[in-house]
Design a protein around this nucleic acid. Structure first.
Lengths: 231, 231
DNA sequence: GATGATACTTTGAGGATTCAAAGTGCCGTC
DNA sequence: GACGGCACTTTGAATCCTCAAAGTATCATC
């Protein structure tokens, strides 16, 4: 049985691999994202390599092995299904479930997980729009365009928020960009570092490109009447 | 934040105090019920005493302090509400939720706990009939009669099973004694170590007094039509 | 190619929890 | 009142995870 610590390490390694798409995740990144000192990261990652979950190249970085990836996706599945469950069933706010799930992801049995999955009708995404790996460890890793990349003056639907900070999520909600919500980017000004869009209330709002990069969108579904945010 | 280990120690101490009603819980009992060696129990209990959760008297035993009792009841509340939730909402079997709750009880936040409590309409008992402490740490510690004590040839209702073993609980279910089920004790034979009762199917069954001691009953509600088990 | 800055690793140590095994106190029996 | 046995405690050690601080490799720059 992997410890919670090990689960956190591989989960974080997976997330960093996805985010950075590097050949190897640098140790510094691992340490920073886990909130531990670099020395601790080195020690633990070596142990992870020992147990076959990661490939470690001193002074270069780490990479998950196939087994490590499998474990990471299992943890991620628990995390995201729990988030969805907390929001849909117990009515917690989508901005606050990440923290809860950080704990629960380590103690949910396969039996309970399967019940939750069925209960929610096998959801594909969690409340933030992050894809939920299926029971066999398959996950949709497609990279959607963001408010920084999508075409101007055409309709889009918010599908994912690349941030878990409650404050950021509440901000995103305030400007009408929850997953499922419609958007249309009006203009971009790289110099002013600003992206201006119209939300589903037809209200015009500007955000920095750093914020825009965290809002992933997709082409809206064909049926005309789908409107407004999830909330 | 108390660790899971500390929570388990105080919870177990509370349960043993309730079960044995002793002045002090002997160290051996603590060790045995936690599945640890006596030496470990001594060490940990001394630490518990240090942090004000227990009063420890060397070579005699331990007792929870007021603070320890408060923590124990908080853990117990989480444990039992989780059990109820798993059965009622996710449809797990009442015989298997104890193990699940053993893990979950340490990571459920107050926020989630409150949601569960409301969702279940503030239940008073868990699926085994164990009383659920309320948010202020109040609990109904009343000791109900068992199949060993209750009057013969009068109707009773099973209210609580004093055992968490899945096999025992499944056995109890097979003989028609789930909480809510009607029973009537036909006879007792102390020599044969047997208690004979009629379950809600009017079937006559005998069990040992050890088993009978684990089946707590109460006077049936007044309304005549309440019949049959919970299941 | 020497110099430094930066990132990474190593080392020593500490807390929490556990065990095995050796030591000690207590209690009933003769 | 000495003896045994049993329950309990102490001791030494191990595991897991962490940190601070000291050491080292690497890379850009001069």
């Amino acid at each position: 049985m992997p410890s919670s610590t090990v689960e956190n390490y591989v989960k974080q390694m997976y997330l960093l691999e996805q985010e950075l798409q590097p050949d190897l995740v640098p140790m510094g990144r691992m340490a920073a994202s886990l909130g531990i000192t670099p020395g601790t990261a080195t020690t633990m990652v070596k142990a992870l390599a020992e147990s076959g979950l990661a490939d470690y190249e001193p002074r270069s970085g780490v990479r998950l092995t196939e087994g490590g990836r499998r474990l990471a996706l299992h943890v991620l599945r628990r995390h995201r299904l729990v988030e969805a469950f907390l929001v849909k069933t117990l009515g917690l706010d989508w901005s606050e479930v990440h923290e809860e799930a950080e704990q629960l992801e380590h103690v949910i049995s396969d039996k309970v997980l399967e019940r939750i999955d069925v209960y929610l009708n096998r959801p594909r995404r969690d409340p933030h729009g992050d894809p939920i790996p299926d029971g066999r460890g398959r996950i949709d890793e497609a990279r959607e365009p963001t408010l920084n990349d999508c075409s101007l003056s055409s309709p889009w639907v918010v599908v994912r928020i690349h941030d878990q900070e409650p404050e950021f999520l509440q901000f995103v909600e305030r400007i009408g960009l929850t997953p499922g919500g419609r958007v249309e980017v009006c203009s971009r000004d790289r110099i002013a570092d600003a992206v201006t869009f119209r939300n589903h209330h037809a209200k015009e709002i500007s955000v920095s490109t750093a914020v825009a990069a965290k809002i992933a969108v997709a082409a809206p579904p064909n049926d005309v009447d789908t409107q407004g945010g999830t909330k």
